[in-house]
Computed example of a mutant assay.
Amino acid sequence: MEFSPIRILGIDPGLRTTGFGVIEAQGQSRVYVASGCIRSGEGSLPERLHVLLKGVREVCDHYRPQQAAIEQVFVNVNPQSTLLLGQARGAAISALVLAGLPVAEYTALQVKQAVVGNGHAAKEQVSHMVQRLLSLNGEPQADAADALACALAHASHATGGLATVGMKSRRGRWVSL
């Protein structure tokens, strides 16, 4: 039985820079479509959030993904930074929902485990594996690489490669029931 390819948009949220990555997944095949960054620039918080919301929506309109995956916020030592990151993430999720996409959320640990096989992998390892898995000529920008990794993690989950029947997420890791 052959399934149609699924176009997945991965988002790595950030207030200054939000990375995006679009892939197509079909069975075990993963094909790179596009990636990049949405930069909010300077200005007031509402203006910057508007830039992010509008930018993610434009990515959705242009690449027409069928599903979306976004990285969950981790708690920083600085509560103000965590709050700002959460607001940027909220703007991105709002854009995805307005585009009519189902949104899956993954911890950084889950993304790293799915892409590298080690939940505590360094950013460089994740970027290198994204390059290898998608047969890219060079390593993508850091935020775009993280977004592509999130899309790859979702593709593994959606096709049964990451979370299969009898698995669940516990404290950010996939474990057997």
Rank of each mutant, 00 (worst) to 15 (best):
A69F: 00
D12Y: 13
A149M: 01
G138F: 11
A25V: 10
A104N: 09
A92M: 06
L136Q: 07
L45Y: 06
S135M: 03
V130K: 11
A69G: 13
I38D: 07
C60M: 13
A121R: 08
Q66S: 13
A121F: 06
I6L: 14
A95Q: 04
G36V: 09
Q141N: 12
L98P: 00
R39C: 10
E71L: 09
Q72W: 08
Q28M: 04
V31C: 04
Y32K: 04
A69I: 00
C60I: 15
R64G: 12
G172W: 03
R7K: 15
G172F: 06
V165K: 06
T18W: 04
K168V: 05
A121N: 03
A153K: 04
G19N: 10
K54I: 08
V130C: 07
A155Y: 00
L162H: 00
L45N: 05
I6S: 08
S127M: 14
L98Q: 10
Q113V: 06
A155P: 02
A99W: 02
G119A: 03
A149F: 05
L133M: 07
L96N: 02
G90Q: 12
L134V: 01
N78K: 04
V103P: 00
A92N: 08
R30E: 07
C150D: 08
R173G: 03
R30A: 06
V175G: 05
S127F: 01
V75R: 12
S40K: 03
L109H: 12
D146A: 06
A92E: 07
M1T: 07
A99F: 05
D146Y: 10
E2I: 04
I11V: 15
D146P: 05
T159P: 01
V73S: 07
A99M: 02
G172H: 03
Q28E: 14
Q87R: 15
G21R: 08
L109M: 12
E42V: 13
F3H: 08
A144R: 04
V33P: 08
L162Y: 09
F20S: 14
R39K: 13
R89Q: 14
K112P: 06
A95Y: 01
A144I: 05
T164K: 09
L109E: 10
I93L: 09
V126P: 13
H62T: 15
R30Q: 07
T107W: 06
T164Q: 11
P46C: 03
Q72L: 14
R170S: 11
V115R: 00
N137W: 03
N76C: 02
